[in-house]
Design a protein around this nucleic acid. Sequence first.
DNA 1: GCAAAAGTGTTACAGTTACACCCATGG
DNA 2: CCATGGGTGTAACTGTAACACTTTTGC
Lengths: 223, 223
Amino acid sequence: MSQEKSFIDRLEVRVVVFSLRDDQLQALFCRSEPIITQVAWELPGDCIPIHQSLEESAGQCLAYFIGLHEAYLEQLYTYGDPGQDPEKRVISVVYFAIIPAGTIINTKIQPTIKWFPVKELPELANNHRDIVDYALRRLRYKLEYTAVGFELLPENFTLTELQRTYELILGEKLDKRNFRRRILEAGVIEPIGQWQSGEGRPARLYRYRPDAVAEVQARRLFP
Amino acid sequence: MSQEKSFIDRLEVRVVVFSLRDDQLQALFCRSEPIITQVAWELPGDCIPIHQSLEESAGQCLAYFIGLHEAYLEQLYTYGDPGQDPEKRVISVVYFAIIPAGTIINTKIQPTIKWFPVKELPELANNHRDIVDYALRRLRYKLEYTAVGFELLPENFTLTELQRTYELILGEKLDKRNFRRRILEAGVIEPIGQWQSGEGRPARLYRYRPDAVAEVQARRLFP
DNA sequence: GCAAAAGTGTTACAGTTACACCCATGG
DNA sequence: CCATGGGTGTAACTGTAACACTTTTGC
């Protein structure tokens, strides 16, 4: 095993932050340093201090950019192609994060950040567009067989809100009765005994049961 | 964004190599340098030269250890917890590889490597046991919704061999008629017009259709 | 001719989908 | 009292799982 050291790699963490805002799935970007003249956006990120684990760094990145200390966080992929300069390479360990709808984030910490709907992304630096696309695929995919959808919602929510969340991410309409029957049968949520009033009949509020076992048996390609 | 450089990180690639051997799923390890006196095994790996991409390095690792230049390769996870020494950290980008059954590998290149059945792993260095467990989960999982199972087989195979492969990895018996019906209906394999003889009636040989679309619609947790 | 492995259909059951109306509240 | 969104059950259909015997070859 060769022992050649890689002194000139730069190791960074990047985070794709998703949230539901304005009835759309949005992702967070920050303005990149204008290298030539073009201004582009990039994924929030940072170097990884030697004393930190990768996940800690991703978490700290969230704290730094949006002042948030708790969020769903999952490693997505590590990118590390050599660039044009054969003496330089950036290793990007990318995480994705999910922020509950309605979370108030402190944009004063970092005035250069901005949310964009995933359907209307701006021009992004490097391969960040591909990264977001991949994160989105993973989110959709994961939504189908785990309970990750609840991470997008506040602690208490109505069944209509939950259904809307699923519809937004999957990009298709779902049947109300089937949706309700199945999610209640799955036993992953419980009513909190309160109702949310607004226009029309008040809606029962539910919360996710953190003890819920919410992995579905995959459908096999072959039996 | 802070610009602190991480000079003392060591960046390495590791590969979990799976193959079917002796009617068992096996993984490849190499003898680790005996640090104190205890001899343990570790995942084959190497440093990542600055001019290479991560996947290239993983591929080169396969070439170096077993003289193989083509194999299914997929990024698994990146590990990078700080160790005891706060000035040192190893970043391990881990891939997993699948080698078709019957592939003759050149163990003369590296006499210190050895296959172990995944059910009888030896003592492994660092967190490599966890890594293998995770790779195995991913392999099982992936088998259920993609056609990755074919990577474990030689180019031509019988339906019984294919079924056996699935049974070995999933760890359960499958029904012969259901298995055959569904895989043939899926249209991912085609007969090559030859038969393999041995004991009993000769078996028809098939091959995987590389143009096959072989992703199954996931079963949803909620509709 | 027999041992050994390949190959082949049907039926019962479970899960999924499609679908339309009444209910409770606020204004 | 009416507009608005919340809430509820059933029937047809589709996919899945369970199951045993015949066929072809080598020895």
